[in-house]
Structures are given as C-alpha cells and as structure tokens.
Simulated scan of single mutants.
Amino acid sequence: MIRLFLALLLAAPAAVCAQTTAWQGKQCAVVLTYDDAIDADLDRVVPALDSLKLRGTFYLIGSSPVVAKRLPEWRRAAQKGHELGNHALMHPCDGTLPGRSFVTPETDLSKYTVARAVSEIRATNTLLSAIDGRTRRTFAYPCGDRTIGGVDFYEPLRGDFVAARGVTKGLPTAAQVDLTNVACYSINGQSAEYMLDLVRQAQQTHTLLVFLFHGVGGGHSLNVDANAHRQLLRYLKAHERDIWVAPLVEVAESVKAQQAGAAPGKPSR
C-alpha cells in the first residue's frame, strides 16, 4: 500500500508536466477567436487586445465587404501578431437544418459539392496570404457544419491548415484535442463571471480553452458586452505567468508537436 501511494505521488507531477508542455509550461492555454470579419473587430477588439499586448484569431469571410474595404487595417492586425483565419469565401451553412432561415440559396452548403467547398476555401487562403504573407493558419467551420451530403469536406483540406475550429463545447487536454474539430465555447450575452469561471476551470485542469466571439459591444446578432469582454482580457493579462494566450495557429502547432511526440510513428490528427 505504501509503495502504491509513493508511486502515485511521484507520477502526479509527471502527469501535470505532460499536460502543460503543450501550453509553454503554463497551467493552460486560452485562445480568443472572433468570427465573420465585422467592423467591431477592427474598431474595438484589435485595439483592446493591442492595449494589453494580447493576440487573437480573427476568422475572415473572404467575400466580406469589411475585408475588402479595410485591407490595410487587417494587414496591420496581422503584423501585430494576430492570426487571420479562414472562415470560407461565402460562409456557407446547411440551410436544411432547423433555425437556418438566414441561409440564402447562394450560401446553402447543402447545395454545394465538396469540390466547390474546397475550391472556395483554398481561394480564401490565397486572399489571406496576399494580406498577411503567411501560409500557416487555421480554419473555422461556418455554423459548425462539417459535411456535404454526409461527406466530410475538410478531409481534402487537412494539409492546407494546422487545425480547424468547430463549435462543440469542451476543455480538452493536449492529448485530447481534435485538430480537425477543436472545441470552443460560443459567447452570446454571457457574463464576465461565466467566462472567468471557464478560464479558472482550464487552469485547474490544465486544458485548452477556446472562446468564440462574434460582436463585441454590438455589430452582430450574437454579442458580448464590451465591459465583460474587457474584464476577461484583464484577467488573462493579470495571470499571463500562468495562462498562455495565443492565436489558435500557434497553440495548434504546439498541440500537434506534443501529440506526435506522444505517439511515435502515428500521424497527428
């Protein structure tokens, strides 16, 4: 019994070390993602992040007029270390699902072919590379939809991205992260305390926490209060010795390396 107790005692620090290696030796990783390329991203979010020297991931819709009209500002955001992620060219969603009255015939994913989806996503990568000069980035599934006629359209794109963010909730360890469908928490009206509680949970469990925001202080049908968002950023800054805050592309690269090292000869997902 004593030997078993000692073995467990010695194993505990090693387990924690393995969990935190992918998080740059910190307790957890937190990723701030912002969808749809809206004016609020450039007007409020980027300045708020820059003021605290924090970096996030902005998922841009290639056809968005906010991308076309404000290219220099997106380029400056990338130069400051923010990731410009791929949110497809037209943001197609499956219009056959409940609650999808906003989907138009032109943006109905159920009417796409896999080849068309892949082509439009790759075209968006070309656009993003022209803005930021980068070739490594992540993808975010529009509406969280992953299939066309039952076929996974991301499969042909695995080599084009470091990872893809989904919409399913979860706080995975580095070993548990699914790089083809990274879990996240979508924020729409929740309080600052709700978000801070999630961060504390991630700290305690040594896991990855990804936030999904749309409008911050307005600008979208899905919003978070600007003050609540500010409280979250201030907490992350105050605890930066314990929390790794980085764009998803950097965190995913670290996770991929950790998973590959933990399973020699087995390709990382």
Rank of each mutant, 00 (worst) to 15 (best):
P92S: 07
D94A: 01
G95C: 02
G95M: 08
G95Q: 06
P98A: 11
G99F: 05
S101N: 14
F102P: 05
V103A: 09
T104M: 08
T104G: 03
E106W: 05
D108Y: 05
D108C: 07
Y112C: 12
V114G: 00
V114D: 04
R116Q: 15
R116A: 11
A117T: 11
V118H: 03
V118E: 04
V118G: 01
S119T: 15
S119L: 10
E120A: 01
I121Y: 03
I121F: 05
I121V: 13
R122V: 01
R122K: 12
R122G: 09
R122D: 10
T124W: 12
T124C: 14
N125A: 05
L127S: 02
L128Y: 12
L128D: 00
L128I: 09
L128F: 08
A130D: 14
D132K: 07
T135W: 00
T135E: 07
T135M: 04
T135R: 04
R137I: 15
F139Y: 14
A140P: 13
A140F: 11
Y141M: 09
P142L: 06
C143V: 08
C143G: 14
G144C: 08
D145M: 02
D145T: 02
D145E: 01
D145I: 07
R146A: 04
T147L: 03
G149V: 14
V151Q: 14
V151K: 12
D152H: 06
F153L: 12
P156G: 05
P156Y: 01
L157S: 04
D160W: 09
D160A: 15
F161D: 00
A164P: 07
R165W: 11
R165L: 13
R165N: 15
R165G: 14
G166E: 00
G166C: 11
G166T: 02
V167F: 03
K169H: 09
G170T: 06
G170E: 12
P172D: 13
P172I: 09
A174L: 07
A175D: 14
Q176A: 15
V177C: 02
V177P: 00
D178I: 11
L179D: 02
L179A: 12
V182M: 14
V182F: 07
A183F: 09
A183K: 15
